[in-house]
Design a protein around this nucleic acid. Structure first.
Length: 272
DNA sequence: GTCCAGGCATGCA
DNA sequence: TGCATGCATGGA
């Protein structure tokens, strides 16, 4: 993987198995917006970015080499060999055809607080409306990064809100969950960094003890915000997919159940 | 108007 | 342990 800088843009090549549409708009992250030229603009942590792909070259605009090295490279999981993982997953028949059709889904290493908070909002909600609510939340309480971009608000900032404030954003019955979650993370009562160091089962147990966090939301936070690639979130779509696996998950998913899940989730939404 | 969405807490058996 | 029910709201 070669990294060069030209006119302030970062060029990374070759980048295999990375389809921007499939990865940035597949329901794991809610803050990437597609531009007219096919590029995407979004924010993670306090870093704005516009991202484009030409062939197997990834082009990052509005950032710098240092932020790429210390942040985006990990965020996009660029050091992981997805090609190899996909080849393994393709030992499963359904995934074989699915990966052929939708090749290029990666797991983004999102911030644990943002992921947990986002997936509390996601429950019993559709992706379009999840994006709408998170957009309002960031615009109202995030840090202004210029160009109409805002960071995801910190737990500390959201801990100042009341249930009514969350209601005003359209969070509905999840408002009470968000109020408590924000206050408990801000106070340190919930320590996401500590949870992230635990083995999967223990980390999941800790997350499920949080008010408003059940099995599904916990698994999403683990997979998308804490680097647990074996977490396997079961939402309404995935429960339909599970009819194809009456004997449980195949052996070839082992270690990367979460990546398999993302392909199956995408397949389900397009085919079931 | 009805139905549904990346579910959860609660009460009850 | 498992199952039924209520829950907010915008889009189809």
């Amino acid at each position: 993987m070669k990294i060069t800088e030209k006119n302030g843009d970062i060029f990374v090549t070759p980048v295999e198995c990375f389809d921007l549409d499939l990865t940035l708009d597949c329901g794991q992250a809610f803050r990437w917006k597609k531009n007219e030229d096919g590029s995407y603009t979004g924010v993670a942590k306090n870093h704005p970015l516009t991202l484009k792909k030409e062939g197997d070259t990834l082009i990052l605009k509005n950032t710098d080499k240092n932020i790429f090295d210390t942040f985006w490279k990990n965020y996009f999981d660029l050091d992981r060999d997805y090609k190899k993982i996909c080849n393994k997953l393709k030992e499963d028949k359904l995934l074989s055809s699915t990966i052929d059709e939708y090749y290029g889904i990666r797991i983004l290493n999102q911030d644990s607080w943002e992921a947990l908070c986002s997936f509390v909002i996601s429950q019993q909600n559709n992706i379009k409306r999840i994006k709408l609510i998170i957009d309002r939340l960031c615009n109202a309480y995030g840090e202004d990064l210029g160009d109409g971009l805002y960071s995801f608000p910190t737990a500390k900032r959201l801990s100042e809100l009341s249930e009514d404030d969350f209601n005003a954003l359209g969070c509905g019955y999840r408002s009470k969950y968000l109020e408590r979650l924000s206050k408990e993370v801000a106070s340190g009562e919930i320590d996401l960094k500590a949870i992230k160091k635990l083995p999967l089962d223990q980390a999941r147990k800790e997350l499920k003890s949080i008010y408003g966090v059940g099995e599904k939301v916990a698994n999403c936070a683990l997979l998308f915000g804490m680097g647990y690639y074996s977490a396997f979130p079961l939402d309404v779509w995935m429960k339909r997919v599970m009819e194809y696996y009456p004997d449980g998950l195949p052996k070839c998913f082992e270690g990367y159940e979460g990546i398999a899940q993302q392909y199956l989730f995408h397949w389900a939404r397009n085919n079931l």
